[in-house]
Simulated assay, not measured.
Amino acid sequence: MTQQQRQTDRKREAILQAAITEFRQNGYEATSMDKIAATAAVSKRTVYNHFPSKEELFSAILMQLWHSTATQEVVTYSAEIAMQSLLEGYLARKMLMLCDPNFLDLSRVAVAATIHTPERASDMVEKLSKNELSIVTWIKAAQKDGKLIAGDPALMADMLLGQIKAIAFWPQVAMGQPILSTEQQQVLIQTTANMFLRYYGK
């Protein structure tokens, strides 16, 4: 990588970090490209060279968010490991993301920005669904191995993750409730895994 390329990458990262700061503090509508440029200490032209519009810049931040969550949430089926242990490990990684203050702040911005823009909301839902394919694949493998009952793997994954999000995500994003304590997180993880296996397990 050339020095010029490294400098270009540094500027792009500075713009992304500045945009995250501004979106978190001021929301989507109140954030301007001028303000982002000032916070990133680059010219407005530089910002537009990397991101032609605020919409594309915001989308880039969401993509970065989705990629980071996808990395954290990968789960691989193994017949040698107890189902309860596998599920709790997966849910614990999911919980780390859902209880991260930065993730919650950006989620609030993302939700607010999509309320009046259905197209953006649809795009977000599609990206989130792709990120959760890992658990769907895990459920299919467990069904094939005779550990889970037959059923729609996507629906089963939604039921599993919905239990976590209903307590550890949506109340914090929509109603400003505090992040769960470590003890509360552990109880929720264990209870969710137990409920899932009691209903879907063989």
Rank of each mutant, 00 (worst) to 15 (best):
L87I: 01
K165A: 15
T8P: 00
P153Q: 13
A141Q: 09
M33R: 01
M156F: 05
T46S: 12
T76Q: 10
L91Y: 00
V173L: 02
A19K: 06
S181G: 03
V125E: 09
I115T: 13
Y200P: 01
D152Y: 09
R120C: 07
N26S: 15
Q5L: 13
D34E: 14
R12L: 07
G27D: 05
M156T: 08
H67R: 12
T137R: 11
M156I: 07
L128S: 11
V173C: 06
P178N: 01
E56W: 08
Y48A: 04
V125M: 12
Q190T: 02
E22F: 09
S32G: 08
V42T: 09
P153I: 15
N26V: 09
T137H: 12
I189W: 00
A112F: 03
S59E: 12
A113K: 04
E73P: 00
K144Q: 15
T114F: 04
G162M: 08
S122V: 11
L128H: 07
A18S: 10
I164D: 00
T71D: 14
T69N: 03
R6H: 09
T69H: 02
I167H: 10
Q177N: 12
L57Y: 06
A112I: 01
V75D: 00
W138S: 03
L104G: 02
T31I: 02
L197V: 11
D100W: 05
P171Y: 01
L180R: 08
D145L: 04
A150N: 13
K130A: 14
E126Q: 13
L86R: 12
P118V: 05
S43Q: 06
L65W: 11
R24L: 10
I139A: 03
N49C: 07
